[in-house]
Design a protein around this nucleic acid. Structure first.
Length: 263
DNA sequence: AACATTCCCAACCGCGGACTG
DNA sequence: ACAGTCCGCGGTTGGGAATGT
């Protein structure tokens, strides 16, 4: 894939690394997508918001179906394309777990040929299996995402929950990650690896957040709590999503046996 | 085995609509 | 009404993997 590089603003472009994915997933699991433009700054990512959104929507989001399209899906895409045209997002809405980008790619690489040549899907030459799934590529090697039929989309999880994500507290992305990924919780010293210092975050966070008594009251707790036990400390407000092991297990996000997250 | 070509898809870009002040 | 900002969509690109010679 595209070689990571920096643009003139110092923002990274190109292929996402596993570390970037981890930061983004952890941040969104913790705070949701409250503002794509601001998100990378608080998540400790040198990416533009657009890039973060795309990565999340097309790859990291839970409940994304990967792998080959079934005949039923392909027929549905063709039928929907006849009626909707290139409105990929509208088509994707009818195919749970499929992204507009994936459908668009599949259309251009395979289905378009079928329709142009009037070839039945079953007789057309199948594209190379995407089970190769770019597994060797950066940012995707460590993905352990499991598809669960009972797993609601993250969109549903966040939207159905009662919280309205506030601007993030002065937590580093590293700490956010540690809070969700218990397997990596080892040493508080790792917080020193932050891309954005707490003071910088403090300075950049909007005023309304700092007047929020929930966070102000618990601000002192934020730097010495490095495990999911933070949930019990009272640091997390009732308005923030509490991502604990039980929650994660219930949606197949967390593998209790191996003590790792499944994404 | 080595090289050339084709395929595939993650990611980028630009545009337009929605929203806000 | 207008300008600025943000978000989402669709078109396109580019480079690694697969396939062909």
């Amino acid at each position: 894939m595209r070689t990571p590089c920096c643009d003139k603003n110092g923002l990274r472009k190109g292929t996402w690394t596993a570390e970037e994915d981890r930061k983004l997933k952890a941040y969104i699991a913790r705070y949701g997508c409250w503002n794509w433009r601001q998100l990378p700054k608080f998540a400790g990512l040198s990416r533009c918001g657009k890039s973060c959104r795309l990565r999340w929507m097309n790859y990291l989001r839970p409940n994304i179906k990967r792998g080959n399209f079934s005949k039923e899906e392909e027929n549905l895409i063709i039928n929907l394309h006849e009626s909707l045209g290139n409105r990929w997002s509208a088509i994707a809405a009818q195919l749970p777990g499929r992204t507009d980008n994936e459908i668009k790619n599949h259309w251009h690489t395979y289905l378009k040929k079928c329709t142009r040549q009037q070839i039945p899907i079953s007789q057309a030459q199948k594209p190379r299996s995407n089970d190769r799934s770019k597994s060797k590529k950066a940012g995707q090697k460590t993905s352990k995402f499991k598809i669960s039929s009972v797993c609601p989309s993250t969109h549903q999880i966040f939207e159905s929950s009662q919280f309205s994500p506030p601007p993030p507290p002065p937590l580093s992305s590293e700490l956010c990650s540690l809070m969700i990924d218990t397997a990596t919780v080892n040493s508080p010293s790792s917080i020193a690896e932050n891309d954005v210092s707490p003071s910088e975050m403090f300075a950049e966070t909007n005023a309304s957040f700092w007047t929020d008594p929930i966070f102000v009251d618990n601000y002192d707790n934020t730097y010495d709590v490095l495990s999911p036990l933070v949930v019990d400390t009272g640091f997390l407000s009732p308005h923030t999503p509490v991502i604990d092991e039980e929650f994660l297990c219930s949606y197949n996000f967390y593998d209790e046996f191996n003590n790792v997250l499944n994404w």
